[in-house]
Amino acid sequence: MKLVIAMLMDGVIYASWLFVIAAGLTLIYGVMKILNMAHGSFYAIGAYSGASLVGIYLAGGNPVWGSYLVLLGAALVIGALVGLMAERGLLRFMYGRDEVVMILVTYGLLLILEDVIKLIWGVEAYSTYQPYTLLGRSKIAGLSFANYDFVLIGVSLLVGFLLWWGLNRTRSGKLLQVVIHDRNTASTQGINVTRMFTVTFVIGAVLGALAGALTAPGISVMPGLGVEVIVLAFAVVVIGGLGSVGGALVGALIVGLARAAAVHIYPDAELFVIYGVMALVLAFRPQGLFAIASARKI
């Protein structure tokens, strides 16, 4: 029983972390058909800004609870800024290129941002654990969990809800769905596709940065951070179906639970369980679980 609860809890916590990262990735893909490798950099930038700003904030003797606001603010402002610069400064010149070329474009961006991060923050580690430890811990079935991780679950549910609500219940969300479904028709109908692209990309970047900022207190922020998460996020998104936010949620849950099960039952399988699940899902559902239907060109 303890084992099952541990597996469930670990799986869900890991999944909520994955989902916040993957949500931005899948959103950008859904709208713009860009599989954004630089998402890893946005994540890293979020983590670095969060950790360093909280560090400065706490060094000023401010109350620790305020650091949550600093984390959030850092992710929003810096994520939006970087996303805007990347989209306006680079990506818009590349629209219309092959999907694979776009992956390479964002790979180039990732390489550049990796070094920009090094130039700004150096290579030494940043750790700001205060927000992580402040909330204490609680026991479930005899196992302690950090309350911060529960907050993470909440945040990820909130992100999922906001995305769903934004896409399905607001006017601009519905317009966005039109763009997702058929870009050309949308633009002939007078929808400003360019603006939609910019807004989507910025939201995606903010989500990436948010994931980073929320992760920062529990880890040591170091170079190479972004490259590590990007393939994980890819796996989640591909399992769920590229471009589907709900799919990303399910994908994250599958990956999280599968990994937790491996760790508890057969630790040796930890490394390939994610790719194994991915290969398995794709073998039966070539487009992932919840792919958005796309017309086949003949």
């Binding site: 680079l90 474009v105 790979y107 180039g108 990732l110 390489l111 550049i112 070094d115 920009v116």
Partner: peptide
């Protein structure tokens, strides 16, 4: 960075 810029 040099690699990235060359690629782009």
């Amino acid at each position: 960075m040099i690699l990235g810029i060359s690629l782009l």
